[in-house]
Amino acid sequence: MPALRLPPQAPSLAEAVAEAVRDGIAAGELVPETTYSVYQLADLLGVSRSPVREGMLRLAEAGLVEIRRNRGFRVLRPRAHDVEEIIEIRLALEPPAARKAALIGTDEQHAAIRSALATMADAAARGDDASFWPADRTLHDLLLRASGNARAAAVVAQLRSTTALLGPPTTASGRTLKQIHAEHEPVVTAVLARDGAAAETAMRAHLEATGAALLASYSARSS
């Protein structure tokens, strides 16, 4: 049985269910092409079926799951075009956000960003995927929120859940933890120096490298 849990803070029960499923997908607890019932998910999360159905409809609108009438839902594996669209959206959102995070982020927010990068560095040195990827997600989330755009942070979190279906991030991207950490260093260095232009450039370079690696991995899997 998949191991899922409701997040402690969410604007609604339906959104909490959707987030729990996104997290379950990213963690590999929910796998592509397997059908899960609404009853099963409601029991796992300890909620009624109504918020589960609403949460699944939200994920279906985002293209993350497919609703199967009278059967439940199944997780959809992204296509090459999906990956291209996701990277395009992230490129539209995250480089400008990195610039704003550098210019308007508070000292407290910058300290949290520095801490997230340090956690990534420690995890990369140990080869600890389980600690690295939550810190990576936290870093991107902190940068987006430091720019003053919480909605963009939510959008990116959802998009990352989709690309997580390509497999473990190091496998999917073809890069080591240390290499991925190294791509984030110039972003954070520029943000902490309040150099908006450099932060934007570094984030764009990181996302372009990520997109190219994900598409190469997808092509290899499909050949």
Rank of each mutant, 00 (worst) to 15 (best):
F73L: 00
I89K: 03
R221A: 15
E29Q: 05
A172K: 01
D43P: 08
E29H: 11
A198G: 09
S147I: 13
A116C: 05
L192M: 06
A18Q: 11
T176W: 10
R90T: 00
T119Y: 06
A26T: 02
L57D: 14
E183Q: 07
A80N: 12
R77K: 13
V155W: 01
A92Q: 10
R194I: 14
S12W: 07
G55W: 04
A164C: 12
A197I: 10
I86Y: 11
S48C: 04
L45V: 02
E88C: 14
A111V: 11
G24W: 01
A209S: 11
R71K: 09
S147A: 08
A92I: 12
R22I: 15
A111H: 10
T119Q: 12
T34L: 12
G46K: 09
D23W: 02
L142F: 08
A216I: 06
N149T: 07
R77D: 05
L45Q: 11
A199V: 11
A146G: 09
A199R: 01
P7Q: 08
V75A: 03
D141A: 08
A154F: 08
R22G: 15
V21T: 09
H184A: 05
L59S: 00
I86E: 02
I86R: 02
V47L: 04
D195R: 11
P2Q: 09
L4Y: 13
R114L: 09
P134E: 03
T119S: 13
G196V: 07
G196R: 06
H206Q: 04
P7V: 01
A216T: 07
K100T: 14
T35Q: 02
A216V: 07
D43A: 13
E19C: 02
L207V: 12
S219W: 07
V188N: 09
R151C: 07
I104S: 06
A216D: 13
A3S: 05
A16F: 10
D128L: 03
P8W: 15
G55Y: 10
R71W: 14
P51R: 01
E66N: 04
D129S: 11
A172L: 00
A193F: 08
L214I: 03
P2L: 09
A123M: 01
R160M: 13
D141Y: 02
A157C: 11
A27L: 08
R145P: 06
A116T: 01
A121D: 05
E85R: 15
L45M: 05
A153Y: 05
S173W: 12
G196P: 03
A125T: 13
E185S: 10
